[in-house]
Design a protein around this nucleic acid. Structure first.
Lengths: 344, 344
DNA sequence: TTTAGCACTCTCGGCGCGAGAGTGCTAATT
DNA sequence: AATTAGCACTCTCGCGCCGAGAGTGCTAAA
């Protein structure tokens, strides 16, 4: 398959740009007028025919304008778009918002989801960072009533897990504190495997606790073990392609159903390293559920420490340039935060 | 305005029941056939005319069947529906699911949202319980790096708040532990006011910490300070009244926009005590945004300790019976949990 | 008070039609 | 050889029309 000429590339880019904006099939005359092209409508038509031939455009019906195919969008994203960056002042505004949120992870996550949704005018999702190798940092045991004990577990990176547990028999706060401080010394900095392998004399209470801790550490290493933040769901509904609710349902189901989302994220992002951005256009033949949607996904965080995922979901006719640059930028900010939180 | 006759009440109830099921205007003949009524269609028509006169029914157009008005739904909910309870085995199934979740608040909340959404076939929301008078229970300070310190604050009731803070100058873990244990003794069981009023010699570090703690306690006393759980958003889209996306957007915006939701919850529930259920039908003239929706809201928790809100959002044509009983039942379960967590 | 009968009203789906937009092809032009 | 003007052709979309069907309100009889 021969390459496209410069003019064909230009026309393809303009059609996509126009279509993304108007959601209407683009005709040769419109294009020429709107962008003051040198060539005449007839020439443009010829080029359009070529692009249609090559599979980058299609006609909704015989006598309508052209619409990009998924292949067309892919070509656009990969070859035509170039590396778009957000305008510096937009970046500054966003960064400022984040820095105002201090070190509150929850606020960062919410803010990230909100920024993504607003900038991309799409639905967004952000998963809290999860440690790849969860490591013990600190344990606290607080007696509440009789055999009920609140266990607060701090992981390396500042992640805090709490759990209420019921002991076999009542234990005084004093005993709890002793056990906690012993385990704090013993387990400091260790991962689940190291803890399991540990060979130290433990009493029954401590053994129980160690078992729970290992469990919790394992759980924390899963990608969706932690929370998922969403925003901008109604943005999706504003898109004309989701005007009838059935299409909209299918789209939003993707974000609502945890197992589906989990599968999607793990399979898409396992080959992506931090900083990389994945663009899924129309399900790519693999994901039946998002046949009418596109997703832009990225990993953030620090490899080996903690990583998370974030992205946006919108119609295939999505403002890829702006969305991709926003996703990349926000991923960068969150990565910085993660590094910050883990460095010591 | 005179009361309705028994037959009129029956007909109104049946029309509402039928309309809730089919979403179609109900005609006199259909009604008579479907429910094997004694009276003839003509009689039923006469009764319908009366009900229309009184404002409980209306006709979409001159020659269509009848549709309940909002007033009709209100009458139904207040006077006709009676006290419906979930079937015992449904209750058992639900309760079982909850008890399997142990004492993990997050799982309870998620589960509650999921159960509400599924049972009511509507969108649901659940706010985490917030303490009305947040009381200090335990403080932990963990040094991470230089001047960065992780503060873990446990409130009465087992609520855990964490916050990263940056000190003016580096402080050793030892000093931190000392400060923490001092404050733990000093502040145990106190609320924000009591802490502020406290008159004790404190060093600079301790003063800073106390200020943060008071701030955090205040924050925790706000209704939406804690997290909001949602589920079943796509259920709303499945309803025929939200077939065009514009209506659906308006509906889902209510759940997405925090300030709006906050306003709605506080104003609706401030007069509602725990156990009570509020039914908002079509915005009740006050809430422009949910003119096309109904909400069923309830408070749960233990007054004076911690309370939260939960509810469902659906079209005005909502299965009120089932929804209300589900909301009530789930609220009861969550109340039990809160009491459990707070008793000591 | 209830009911059968009946004329009337209004929606809804299908159909035809004309306007409009856009195409592909051909032949002329550069 | 590439470009372009001209033109016939195609297809959608909105509009109005019409007949079927459902449901009503009224009247008069039971």
């Amino acid at each position: 398959m021969s390459e496209l000429t410069e003019r064909q590339r230009l026309i393809l880019a303009l059609i996509i740009r126009e279509y993304i904006e108007t959601a209407q099939p683009v005709g040769s005359e419109t294009l020429q007028k709107r962008y003051h092209l040198e060539a005449s409508p007839a020439t443009i038509r010829n080029e359009m025919a070529v692009l249609t031939e090559k599979g980058y455009l299609r006609q909704p019906h015989t006598s309508a304008g052209r619409v990009p195919t998924e292949e067309g969008y892919r070509y656009f994203v990969r070859q035509l778009m170039g590396h778009i960056d957000l305008p510096p002042d937009t970046k500054r505004t966003i960064a400022h918002q984040f820095y105002q949120a201090g070190y509150d992870l929850d606020r960062w996550m919410r803010l990230a989801a909100s920024v993504l949704a607003q900038q991309a005018k799409a639905a967004s999702l952000v998963t809290a960072p999860h440690v790849e190798q969860a490591r013990f940092k600190h344990l606290e045991l607080i007696s509440t009533r009789g055999r009920q004990v609140l266990m607060v577990l701090v992981l390396a990176g500042g992640d805090v897990r709490q759990q209420m547990l019921t002991l076999a028999e009542p234990v005084s706060q004093e005993q709890l504190s002793t056990a906690a401080s012993r385990l704090n010394q013993l387990l400091s900095g260790l991962g689940p495997e190291a803890i399991s392998a540990l060979n130290a004399p433990l009493d029954a209470l401590e053994q129980d606790l160690v078992r729970l801790i290992v469990e919790e550490l394992h759980h924390s290493s899963q990608i969706l073990g932690s929370e998922v933040y969403r925003d901008g769901l109604t943005n999706v509904l504003a898109q004309p392609e989701f005007a009838e609710s059935e299409a909209a349902r299918r789209a939003l189901r993707i974000l609502e159903e945890r197992p589906l989302l989990e599968d999607l994220l793990t399979r898409t992002l396992e080959t992506t390293n931090v900083g990389g951005v994945q663009v899924l256009i129309g399900g790519e033949g693999t994901w039946e559920e998002l046949r009418e949607c596109s997703m832009i996904l990225a990993r953030y965080g620090a490899p080996g420490l903690a990583t998370g995922a974030l992205g946006v979901l919108g119609p295939i006719r999505m403002a890829y340039g702006r969305s991709i640059s926003t996703v990349r930028f926000v991923a960068g900010l969150l990565s910085d935060l993660v590094v910050e939180l883990h460095s010591e």
